[in-house]
Write a protein that binds this DNA or RNA. Structure first.
Length: 161
DNA sequence: GTTGAGCGTT
């Protein structure tokens, strides 16, 4: 529940070959209900509305490219950006990508439509992306970064420049 | 070919 419930599901989906008999269900036969908080209280698995048209897609196959991602998310709305993050060093896909829609509605629709779906043989998960850039304008920086204006600790003694 | 946690280039 840290970031999203996708992580837990991914582990389960991938761990079907082993640790089956070792699975322990914390299910008490005495209790008939009120065991899981998200089963009767929430009622339905409705995720909260998006606050950003940017989506973070994880669980992508390493063979999946931007075109594949764009082709998979294009019918749900106008894509401002659809990119699979690839490592600059290795040049291979990192296994996740970003989808930017024009509006949040499209992003929300695509998110519900493509979440936990198959892409290139892998189950992908769509979640709201975290802001990459912060403080584009207005507001002040949380780190005042005081001092160090004239004094500099001579920890690096021996290096004069 | 590279199998699996995570949030990108300007």
């Amino acid at each position: 529940m840290a970031l999203s419930s996708s992580t837990a599901f991914r582990r389960i989906l991938r761990g079907t070959s082993s640790s089956f008999s070792q699975l322990k269900f914390t299910f008490s036969p005495r209790r008939q209900s009120s065991s899981f908080p998200l089963d009767e209280d929430s009622g339905i698995k409705e995720l909260p509305p998006l606050t950003t048209p940017k989506l973070f897609v994880s669980g992508l196959s390493r063979l999946t490219t931007d075109e594949k991602l764009k082709d998979a998310f294009s019918p749900f709305g106008q894509l401002l950006e659809a990119k699979v993050i690839t490592d600059r060093v290795s040049g291979r896909s990192k296994g996740f990508g970003f989808i930017s829609y024009a509006t949040i509605e499209e992003a929300d629709k695509a998110r519900y439509a493509m979440n936990a779906k198959f892409l290139d043989g892998w189950v992908i998960f769509v979640d709201p992306a975290k802001p990459k850039e912060r403080r584009p304008l207005t507001s002040s920086s949380p780190e005042p970064e005081a001092s160090e204006t004239g004094f500099r600790s001579n920890k690096t003694i021996g290096w004069c420049g």
